[in-house]
Write a protein that binds this DNA or RNA. Structure first.
Lengths: 347, 347
DNA sequence: TTAGTTTGTGCAATCGTTTGCACAAACTAA
DNA sequence: TTAGTTTGTGCAAACGATTGCACAAACTAA
């Protein structure tokens, strides 16, 4: 019925107080007497008073909203990161606005613009596959809006970021494959302008070196890492090197595609070909055999990104020196790579 | 450098115009001369003028933001619905604010409150598993904020909603199992206060009736439909009815759990036990055999929900009669249920 | 020339809060 | 008593845009 929401001035009128007194009472200001506060609170309760955040935001120059731009929400990884982001942000009294770039720079630019227009207090970004140009992100910094990258970052000392130690993850996974006796390990890699793909690839390379194996270009295939890319890539690799006996993929989607192709060729997993991937997707435990994968501490990444952002937001104008946080990955060893019974725990 | 964003009054000052003229020029008002408009636009461009949406929202009483409350974002279904929602909402110039209730009423209430505080223009809701009480949602309507349910709805003629024809989906799936020769079909059901679970269950019941089979309570198990619930439920069912030869689960997560248990007992799929589920999750095509499932037209559901909401928003005070949209499901037949080769296409 | 219309612009209130400053009343200390 | 402090409240100006109304200038019609 009451289509009109009670505002501070309604309260003030009914209580014969000034608007400012009511405002202060509501924010529990110490200069207001206890008696007055009680009267205000009581009436506020009765009238279902709810503060208008837009007005407050306008006045304070802060919207208490943070924006998030991610490549896509489907799949375990970003969903969990977002959960982490939301949890911490909400705790801190911030709303979260999520946008998907669909791996498309143009959309990413639009997302950023929309967030800026909505006057968000800060922005978290994980880059799209197709982002080579960073002007829209520079613009954010130029305007003095706090900005933190996570996972897929713009590599720069100037700006804060939270990443996984992708190098270590790749290194661990490949070392594990080597320890299982693999001699010809292939790599399904992603776009090399993305830090995560580049670093996982580096991990692969260095693990091989460490074990005294040469890096064979015929065993390496780069793509955008869709499931289809995984299938196709695997087919090509097997054509070039029929006796390859291990695969490290830059993500699990490509890995599962590769697995399908390996099976189709009648090869056994892990006896003939051992597999390891990255991301610890939900489906990893549902395939046969289950897929070995590097866990990315998704929620923690989300929470940490929010922490960095809040630091910057509360710091206000006083510039905070950019921070880089690196999280340590965990290799989850499962059936797709486990040849010799070992002490590792299958999940 | 320019930490201070240009505002309308900055433009006005530099052009020796009044604020109102500038405002009108920017909105291309016909009462402003072409010459003036050009001057304003030119300077706006130069100064990178961006309107402050908060101020406009405050004045116009509209934030151009819509809120979405979903149980969780992980898993294919809601992720895709959200994609549909975002696409259409952005097209219409609206921002989207997404909140997860984590299947928890208390959190759902907080989400709703946060959205109301953020002055969203409308809210889309899919209920949490634990929502029995609808006060927080009534409150939304009481305040005159447009509200549309999707998928998991509050059953009421009073409020708009978009749903799948869950009954039909369940009916089709179970008919399919019956056609494959199943004689003892079990059902892994969800909380019966949720429309979707109730209707899928009804579909199960009626399909059995249609084929002249009795409904056996020993073949029915209700739970919250986690993967673990699926495993446990299946174990119980198999204990009561060892010769059951088909399972229809209310979602794919429970189904995949059931599948694990079936395999563990050494039964073959689909020869001994045929399986069908609901949601068409990504992993359905990754298990062995692949899982038969009912597709839910997720993106379409999201888009339709936004359409209904926008209708209500633009209608303003003039009440729109609530609409219910029912989408038709598609049964995707895969290896987990396909006993006899048929014309259906496995995906 | 006069009255009426069109065209372009400005004034000022408004949306709901916040907050620096002023000020009266009550209290404290000497 | 006097001066100084504390306590509680109100005034009024922001924040940045929108919009009803007023009004001057230019134009039109008779």
């Amino acid at each position: 019925m009451t289509i009109h929401r009670a505002s501070i001035s309604d309260l003030a009128a009914q209580l014969n107080l000034s608007v400012s007194t009511v405002s202060r009472a509501l924010s529990n200001n110490s200069r207001i007497s206890e008696a007055t506060k009680q009267r205000v609170w009581e009436l506020a309760r009765q009238l279902h008073y709810q503060p208008n955040h837009l007005a407050a935001a306008l006045r304070k120059g802060r919207s208490n909203t943070i924006g998030v731009v991610i490549p896509h929400i489907d799949g375990q990884f970003f969903a969990l990161v977002v959960k982490g982001i939301e949890t911490l942000a909400n705790q801190a009294g911030f709303n979260v606005m999520i946008c998907q770039s669909n791996e498309n720079v143009a959309q990413e630019q639009k997302n950023i613009e929309a967030l800026l227009n909505a006057q968000v207090d800060g922005i978290l970004v994980s880059l799209s596959l197709s982002t080579h140009d960073f002007q829209h992100l520079e613009e954010v910094r130029r305007r003095g809006i706090p900005l933190v990258f996570f996972d897929r970052i713009m590599e720069s000392e100037q700006v804060s970021a939270v990443v996984l130690d992708d190098y270590q993850g790749g290194y661990d996974a490949v070392c594990h494959l080597l320890e299982q006796g693999c001699q010809q390990i292939a790599h399904l890699g992603g776009p090399q302008h993305l830090n995560i793909c580049k670093n996982r690839y580096q991990g692969y390379v260095n693990a091989l070196r460490k074990y005294g194996q040469a890096v064979n270009p015929d065993l390496i295939h780069f793509s955008d890492l869709s499931m289809q890319d995984g299938r196709d890539g695997m087919a090509m690799l097997l054509k070039k090197v029929p006796h390859l006996d291990g695969v490290f993929a830059c993500n699990d989607l490509a890995l599962v595609g590769a697995m399908q192709m390996v099976k189709r060729q009648g090869l056994r997993i892990p006896q003939d070909v051992a597999l390891a991937g990255f991301s610890n997707e939900l489906f990893d435990s549902l395939t046969e055999p289950m897929l070995t994968s590097v866990d990315q501490r998704c929620e923690e990444m989300g929470r940490t990104a929010v922490e960095l952002l809040l630091e910057m937001i509360t710091a206000g104008k006083h510039p905070v020196t950019p921070r880089h946080v690196v999280l340590q990955p965990t290799l989850l060893i499962r059936g797709s790579s486990q040849r010799v019974p070992a002490g590792s725990i299958a999940v």
